[in-house]
């Protein structure tokens, strides 16, 4: 058993020990990877050294860690965690293990908007334009997917998926069209963004994204329990007093915002959103908030490690993290699949 009940005035929870322990382990991994990321780079800084440097509050080490590495590590964690949580929510809501932020056309919409901005305004207008364009594109596509899937005031997961895939393809076609018809240098500059990276992240980026994500989570975390109910029959969920259409809309909204923000700063590395939730499902077998937390930790770990690999293994090259997200994640995932078949 080992379950724990917490009851304070007005607050009560049942904490199942095992899932939370597993989620805690994945969080711990996440922290370890973050520390290693801070230590590694063009200059190797042993933990003792950079801790000492941090304490001093000045000097070269302090500068490297706080100004260069920390923002990048934090941004990577934020992007990975947000995409993973978005994917986890969408897999619950759409009742399909293949669902990811791509499924509703989120990455497609963001990519189309960003490439259009790069093509038309050639990247002018300040640092804030690109993220705003990405979020606007993503939300526009999701909103139209939802509106198109609406019938008699309801949407079904099945129609959402099909229309989302269609709209995603449409956005993808627009991107390709712009890349091919557009100026020659557009393709290479857009391509790096499309692959997804956390290049040149500064403190403002990390803080802005963190703040916005926290704002979304403020609404999103209380909705997690509705995500748990989403795989239930509509009739059964309605029977226990859940307004199914409203909770579905709210969850899709939260998932879209999370993914839209992550894509705006980290580019379209949607693979995290597909497979981090899967790893979490296999790791924390029982559905619940612990599983969602594990997904976040795994997503963050993967993007941080991908960025770490991208900026250290191929020195002096600094390769976009999006490339290594799959390179880090996929073998792990495949190994898990193989091991699981052997044991079952």
């Amino acid at each position: 058993m080992g379950d724990m009940t917490i009851r304070l005035a007005g607050y009560s929870r049942r904490i199942a020990w095992r899932p939370w322990r597993l989620a805690g382990l994945s969080l711990l991994t996440c922290v370890v990877i973050a520390l290693v990321s801070l230590a590694c780079g063009r200059v190797w800084l042993p933990p003792g050294e950079w801790l000492a440097g941090l304490k001093r509050g000045e000097g070269a080490i302090w500068l490297i860690v706080t100004q260069l590495r920390l923002p990048r590590v934090v941004l990577a964690a934020e992007v990975g965690g947000a995409l993973a949580l978005s994917g986890w929510i969408l897999q619950q809501v759409l009742r399909n293990p293949l669902a990811s932020p791509d499924t509703l056309g989120l990455s497609g919409g963001a990519s189309a908007a960003v490439v259009a901005y790069l093509a038309l305004a050639a990247g002018q207008g300040g640092a804030w334009v690109r993220p705003v364009a990405a979020i606007a594109g993503a939300l526009l596509v999701v909103a139209s997917v939802y509106a198109l899937a609406l019938r008699g005031g309801r949407v079904t997961p099945y129609r959402l998926i099909l229309i989302g895939v269609g709209m995603g393809a449409l956005a993808g076609a627009v991107v390709t069209l712009m890349l091919i018809v557009g100026r020659a240098e557009l393709a290479s500059s857009a391509y790096v963004w499309l692959v997804g990276s956390v290049y040149g992240a500064n403190r403002a980026d990390a803080v802005t994204l963190g703040g916005l994500l926290a704002l979304v989570l403020l609404f999103g975390v209380p909705l997690i329990r509705y995500a748990l109910l989403a795989p239930l029959d509509d009739a059964l969920a309605a029977g226990i007093g859940v307004s199914v259409p409203a909770s579905r809309l709210a969850l899709i909204g939260v998932a879209s915002l999370l993914a839209g923000l992550a894509i705006a700063w980290g580019g379209a590395m949607a693979f995290v959103g597909l497979f981090a939730p899967h790893l979490a499902r296999r790791w924390v077998a029982v559905s619940g908030s612990a599983q969602a937390l594990a997904a976040v930790a795994i997503g963050a770990s993967v993007v941080m490690s991908a960025d770490l690999v991208g900026r250290t293994l191929f020195l002096p090259l600094d390769l976009p993290a999006g490339i290594f997200v799959a390179a880090v994640g996929a073998p792990f995932f495949i190994g898990l699949l193989i091991r699981e078949t052997r044991t079952s």
Binding site: G329, A330, L337
Partner: peptide, 19 residues
């Protein structure tokens, strides 16, 4: 799932080569 993972891996390698 195996297909999706492998596809992602190979696309990543292609992307790396292209970048």
């Amino acid at each position: 799932l195996a297909g999706a993972a492998l596809a992602a891996l190979f696309n990543a390698i292609s992307q790396a080569l292209l970048v």
